[in-house]
Design a protein around this nucleic acid. Sequence first.
DNA 1: GATGAATGAGAATTCATTCAT
DNA 2: GATGAATGAATTCTCATTCAT
Lengths: 204, 204, 204, 204
Amino acid sequence: MPAIDSKRRKPQRASAVNVVEMIFEASARILQTDGRAGLNTNRIAQQAGVSIGSLYAYFPNKDAILLAMARRELVLLRESVMTSLEREDPDTPPLRAVIRALIAGYSTRDQARRLLMEALVAGGHSDQIREAIEVVTAFLARDGRGLFPSPPSPTALFILTRAVDSVVRLATYEQAGFLHAQEFEDDLVCLVEGYFLKRDIDHR
Amino acid sequence: MPAIDSKRRKPQRASAVNVVEMIFEASARILQTDGRAGLNTNRIAQQAGVSIGSLYAYFPNKDAILLAMARRELVLLRESVMTSLEREDPDTPPLRAVIRALIAGYSTRDQARRLLMEALVAGGHSDQIREAIEVVTAFLARDGRGLFPSPPSPTALFILTRAVDSVVRLATYEQAGFLHAQEFEDDLVCLVEGYFLKRDIDHR
Amino acid sequence: MPAIDSKRRKPQRASAVNVVEMIFEASARILQTDGRAGLNTNRIAQQAGVSIGSLYAYFPNKDAILLAMARRELVLLRESVMTSLEREDPDTPPLRAVIRALIAGYSTRDQARRLLMEALVAGGHSDQIREAIEVVTAFLARDGRGLFPSPPSPTALFILTRAVDSVVRLATYEQAGFLHAQEFEDDLVCLVEGYFLKRDIDHR
Amino acid sequence: MPAIDSKRRKPQRASAVNVVEMIFEASARILQTDGRAGLNTNRIAQQAGVSIGSLYAYFPNKDAILLAMARRELVLLRESVMTSLEREDPDTPPLRAVIRALIAGYSTRDQARRLLMEALVAGGHSDQIREAIEVVTAFLARDGRGLFPSPPSPTALFILTRAVDSVVRLATYEQAGFLHAQEFEDDLVCLVEGYFLKRDIDHR
DNA sequence: GATGAATGAGAATTCATTCAT
DNA sequence: GATGAATGAATTCTCATTCAT
């Protein structure tokens, strides 16, 4: 019995993960191609290959889908950045590693990602975004491992994190040709390092 | 009849301007209080004190209202920045003047403004935003009047303009307490100037 | 102008009354033939010959339709009873007149009427029914014009009004053949008069 | 296996009884708290602590549950009335005993009971109710054991049974304070006895 | 037999838009 | 030109019921 059973291990839970995954996948695809206006629950279910009833078994309503997706994107992005920080590459300074991870992270499914973030904000959940950034920010503030030459003030931290994040995101959305150019990465690093340089000069 | 009617204020053309203005005003109010979900043409018309029929006499469809509003916001913002550049205040360097104008410009009706921008983007009109930024960018690039210590590359211009714009906008949305603190303005100026400083050092 | 206009006097209000009336009519018809299960807003609108949108312009939701109908039934019934009381027919004693009016009132569209009342009760609006009965009850208590031989106690009033009302209603629902028989009316009168007779004997 | 299984309580038939009972219990509870609108098979199953699949093993469909419950209520009520008639208490005349049994029977779980009756009626099963009443009615007509002073006509039987039943039920629904007052019982007895008194006087 | 995930028909409701007056 | 009643396609969501495991 156990042997035979192993074919269908974790029948419900595994399936649940798949259904959620398929729904995310379908939603992203629709968002990517037709934008927010083209997104409706029936279409999501159809694209995902599940019944509309199943969709509602996993999510209480349409917005919950977007919210969950956005949250997941945020988590993924955060993790990719954190990972890049942990993977202490001697050739790449931490700041550059983070920026590189950010560029890589934002490069896939940009339209869907943007709309997701906008959905979060429009739904009054911008605190979720803030929170996700705060986590990284807090990490950077705590043990930035030499990410920053000197500890930034809260205001400076806000400015630097948002500036880098926004610029990368906007470059992605506008499908700027320079997104993957070395110059883009260099200039972003320069922006952050320049800030500290200037600040230290000004403040003596 | 026409004689009698002339009692009414600004009958023809002026009225059209008013109606459009009332529709903008009503839309902004609804956006501000109930978000995108609460916005519908009937409600806009009601709030604006015009009939739904009239609303459709001035705008071909709902999206056109948001599009027109967003465009106007962009124009207003651009003009405020341009004005601040033109008004060459000897005490305030151009860069600081521009940043100050931006902060002031974003401070009013933030929720409505954000949703408007999102409407533009979601509707696939992000080129409109880009265009507006380009106009300023181009102006800055052309005769920045000493705005930048040295002419930035296109990539650098993209990074700097987006970074400043995004940071100010996000600070507004998050109702950050430091939005009107001197430190915030100073740090933004520092961010831009630092970039050039660092770049010049790196490139000799 | 006035002459010509008279063709379409009270365009909206008159139409509104008609739409409401058509919706009531359609709902009653559906209730009568297919019961509560067959009643849905799309069908009501279709039967009423109005668009579903119009239906929702006049009623906030499905329940409101039933509630409004039930209320109206109650009002009509009450009025028919009150009228019969006012119309002091010398040949017919008031009690008999009321019972006769009740029988006549309940005889039309019985199924719809029953379901309506049930909807009221099920929706937690049984107070509406109570209220309607109270109005008649209060009237009877105040100046029953010799309806009752002597003033009944509140409990007695409750028992008598509900007994008569229920019996007539149930006879209607069961499409009892005796509904319009003289005996039925006579026995109901006898029930009420007997109560007072017995009570006076018992209490001396 | 069967041997091992025998540890479990009342495995076969008794379990079926329990499941049905739990389903009834759960349905009544939901009906009581959230009314007809809150009643759905999934919720019933959950409340009853059985799987939805099991629920459908015991009942062919949702309506069957309500139907069965209503039928059972009717049977219980009928039996309580019959019992009270059989239990010839020398101190309590049969009529009073029946009325007392009725009041007691209706006093428990009134909301659920009402909705149940409505379910029966709405489902076009009002004949079931009629039938239950007919059984008692027939019994009363056959050997009322001195319940009535003289045999009532079919019409009178209809009127008397429905009047008493309805008044008690309505008093229950309206949670009338006088439900358990002596006066209420007395007046009901008076209503029935008065009818015969009056009838005999009128018909000589 | 039991389970509960999955199904999908169908119901309620919204709202952009039209057009007769 | 203005009005606002009317329209109905489209959308969200529910829930009775089935059936593979």
